[in-house]
Design a protein around this nucleic acid. Sequence first.
DNA 1: AAAATAGTTGACCATTTGGTTTAGTTTTTG
DNA 2: CAAAAACTAAACCAAATGGTCAACTATTTT
Lengths: 109, 109
Amino acid sequence: MTSLDLLFGALADDTRRAFLAQIGTGELPLSRLEPPRSMSLAGVIKHVRVLEEAGLLTREKRGRTVWCRSEPAPLREAANWIETYQGFWNERLDALAIHLTINGEADRA
Amino acid sequence: MTSLDLLFGALADDTRRAFLAQIGTGELPLSRLEPPRSMSLAGVIKHVRVLEEAGLLTREKRGRTVWCRSEPAPLREAANWIETYQGFWNERLDALAIHLTINGEADRA
DNA sequence: AAAATAGTTGACCATTTGGTTTAGTTTTTG
DNA sequence: CAAAAACTAAACCAAATGGTCAACTATTTT
């Protein structure tokens, strides 16, 4: 299984996306993660492991609590695939370029 | 299951990403799709259905051949999630803005 | 009309996934 | 020390996934 499989697979779940959103740029004790649909702590741990194996988060044990930190780098890989596969992101960037060009000409006037 | 689940789930497979890449912006007969690892036509059809259910492709039957066309719109939804969840795309767009600003000033000189 | 091409469907199978419960370990706290 | 808190690991289960093959429909082509 390729790393993109792991990556997209990890993102293909409500619960796991919620965890990433909750962690954001900070860090959170594993037991503070709030699954959208209630589940046992063991269930939570399984999801955390999937995210970890996809490289999307790291765990650090301090005392008796495990702190989860999100790792954004792999997301770039996923976004790169989307971008490369079909130039729709290019269209978006083109649109921005046009916007900035207009602004630039407005500045000049 | 939410539509993002379907979307990321559809992308979480080598074979299906290959199909999307092969179709690109054009269209391709279903039987011309080339799975990375060889498989029966029935297998191919199952993958095509997954992509279809995620909204990533549409089929049109003309004569005896089914033409597959890729639908980029849902990808934007996926990319939007990535962008929203943590502002790393913003950094990228910022970088482009800086680039264009420099060009604009070069034009002015 | 007969044969080949293109696709679909259904039954089946093995593996993975998403969850549970129970029984642990380790680290704090009373 | 004893109890609570935070986590882990193993066994188990149902459902989904990724694949097969065989039988079938529909459309060309010869």
